[in-house]
């Protein structure tokens, strides 16, 4: 049989639609930065001559050199290895909090959007109240009640994100549940559970994934802010926010102790923002069409 239309490979399909060109730059740059950061976080603390919590009093506030690439802090701890270890904490909090938010927010949004009516109101109204608080304020409230520590920060940010994920999931579900294939599945006698898990859930996840990658960046900023004010990760764990807080006290004679963790946070957040923007561009044809 002669094929009239050459089958398109996925890459060619993307390129023909202008998707590969437009997303390459953002997605690839974001993913590239993130990969380097993950590698630094995983490798450096184990191979570097200094440990993240190792105190070398003679090197107190030492300026950047071959011994200490980013200098040393007031206790003589190497800033580079602390930044690398700080990345591990930041990534743990970002991934952990998003997983909590996804685990709770996706089922809530899915059920609210699919069921509609009273169940929708019952689920969404309390979440609307939580969303009415600025994220940092709600995280401070949770920290005020539960105390401080990496686990608490992770939980606090996860709780802050549940309403956001649930709302995005609900909106996507509302669109998908009206699709003909969902109606066809129901007409075929599939149970609501089968339709929800087999059709609605997989087809509604796109916007949630974009939102999750953007929220990862915000989670890192939130963790840094909470640790900076003393409501997050507890010392001596080298959180990037805590390092900024410590570095602030030696601003005039050792600015590197503050500059390095700040730039480190910025790069990590930037990588997630680039990935989020790239994914958004990939999934939203309107944005691709007019280069916005």
């Amino acid at each position: 049989m002669v094929t009239l239309v050459r089958p398109l490979s996925f890459a060619r399909l993307l390129r023909r639609r202008g998707m590969l060109e437009s997303t390459n730059a953002q997605l690839v740059t974001g993913a590239g930065i993130l990969l380097v950061i993950v590698a630094v976080a995983l490798i450096v603390p184990f191979v570097w001559p200094y440990g993240p919590e190792q105190i070398v009093t003679d090197d107190s506030l030492a300026s950047p050199s071959w011994h200490h690439l980013f200098g040393a802090d007031s206790l003589g701890r190497d800033v580079f290895v602390r930044v690398a270890d700080g990345y591990r904490i930041s990534l743990t909090v970002a991934v952990g909090s998003i997983l909590i938010a996804l685990a709770v927010g996706i089922p809530l949004g899915l059920i609210a959007g699919y069921a509609g009516g009273r169940i929708d109101s019952l689920i969404m109204r309390p979440l609307d109240v939580l969303m009415a608080f600025p994220a940092i304020l709600l995280a401070i409230v949770v920290a005020a009640v539960l105390g401080t520590g990496t686990g608490v920060v992770l939980l606090a940010i996860g709780i802050v994100y549940v309403p956001i994920i649930a709302r995005v999931m609900r909106a996507a579900t509302l669109v998908v549940r009206r699709e003909p294939y969902v109606e066809a599945a129901l007409a075929r006698g599939a149970s609501h559970r089968q339709v929800l898990l087999g059709h609605v859930l997989p087809n509604s996840l796109g916007p949630v994934i974009v939102q999750a990658s953007l929220l990862m960046g915000v989670a890192i900023l939130l963790e840094a802010a909470l640790s900076f004010v003393g409501l997050g990760v507890r010392p001596p764990t080298p959180s990037l926010g805590l390092m900024l807080s410590d570095g602030r006290d030696y601003l005039s004679n050792a600015p590197w102790a503050m500059i390095a963790p700040g730039v480190a946070i910025m790069l990590l957040v930037l990588s997630f923002n680039l990935i989020g923007d790239g994914l958004n561009l990939l999934l939203d044809p309107r944005l691709r069409a007019n280069g916005r």
Binding site: A224, L244, P255, M258, G262, M266, V269, L270, N273, D277
Partner: peptide
């Protein structure tokens, strides 16, 4: 714009102190 939304506002504050105050 992308860099701007990726920086913690309190870090911008500390950097501004370093530059314009100190």
């Amino acid at each position: 714009g992308l860099v701007g939304i990726s920086m913690p506002d309190f870090w911008i504050g500390i950097t501004l102190i370093l530059l314009f105050s100190l």
